[in-house]
Design a binder for these strands. Sequence first.
DNA 1: TAATTTAAAGACATTAAACTCTTAAATAGA
DNA 2: TCTATTTAAGAGTTTAATGTCTTTAAATTA
Lengths: 149, 149
Amino acid sequence: MLLSKSCVYGLRAALYLAAKNDGEYHSLREMSEELNISFHFLTKILQQLTSDGLMESYKGPNGGVKLSEKGKKATLFDMVIAIDGPGLFTQCALGLPGCGSQEPCPLHESWIDTRASIENMLRRTTLIKIAEEGKAKHFRLTAEGKFSW
Amino acid sequence: MLLSKSCVYGLRAALYLAAKNDGEYHSLREMSEELNISFHFLTKILQQLTSDGLMESYKGPNGGVKLSEKGKKATLFDMVIAIDGPGLFTQCALGLPGCGSQEPCPLHESWIDTRASIENMLRRTTLIKIAEEGKAKHFRLTAEGKFSW
DNA sequence: TAATTTAAAGACATTAAACTCTTAAATAGA
DNA sequence: TCTATTTAAGAGTTTAATGTCTTTAAATTA
């Protein structure tokens, strides 16, 4: 798969928060139930995004997480970098270290174009914009269409 | 990563054979040494490609594997399908089962285009064509540039 | 026929990703 | 201050991918 499960879960949670975008903290329990993601696993992922500054968290009753200012400006690309790291956008398609225009592998030229188109797609818009569109068009964020923005 | 390691190893081995393309069987020992791939692991992968009809094998002295007629016509796409399966070309970017134009996720429209560009890149040419170009331009197939077509 | 070379098959081991559980720390409200 | 709620942190488990080893079967050569 293109993105790890951690990354996909992180994206879905971020889109959830972007759709709310009400300045409130939303609890991980609520999010894990709405999005059908394991509570503890989601916790791990969002901890990482919080320590990366894409989200802010608050403990105690009515605590939870919300998008930080940085998170509100973030694109899908920023999220993927935060969770999966930059490998997808830097590595050789054949996994050869040092592959580049100097010493290309047979796929190099084709791959850098394709890789760029993946990156462009992920950079195109912010989480907030995607969530707006999701709300307007009733896109879905779970297998069962459970979540209702 | 876009492709599994098994897939990358299989591709490199297939390009090796495509570069030879001499009708001879090449032993897995030779290939694993030239390409710096674990012998036993490579064996597993090529067994799969042989049972898929992309390669032909022959036991005994001077035995080994070579591209079948089907393999000579195969593209990178065919190889990826054989090893990693069709998931990359069919699945939702967010992993939502049943995501499609009927009930799209927020990334659906962007993703199907990107996905198609990956597929097109992999379908563009045959292994043989890529190997020809590799020979002509001295592209590399190993980390160290060991293999010399 | 016997010895050698090679792939096939399957068992086994290691590693990394995915997932779970428990305890600690912070906060709120009674 | 006490209790409940919530995230943080870290340890542990499971599963799938990756990698290794051994045995078997097929073919060649002598």
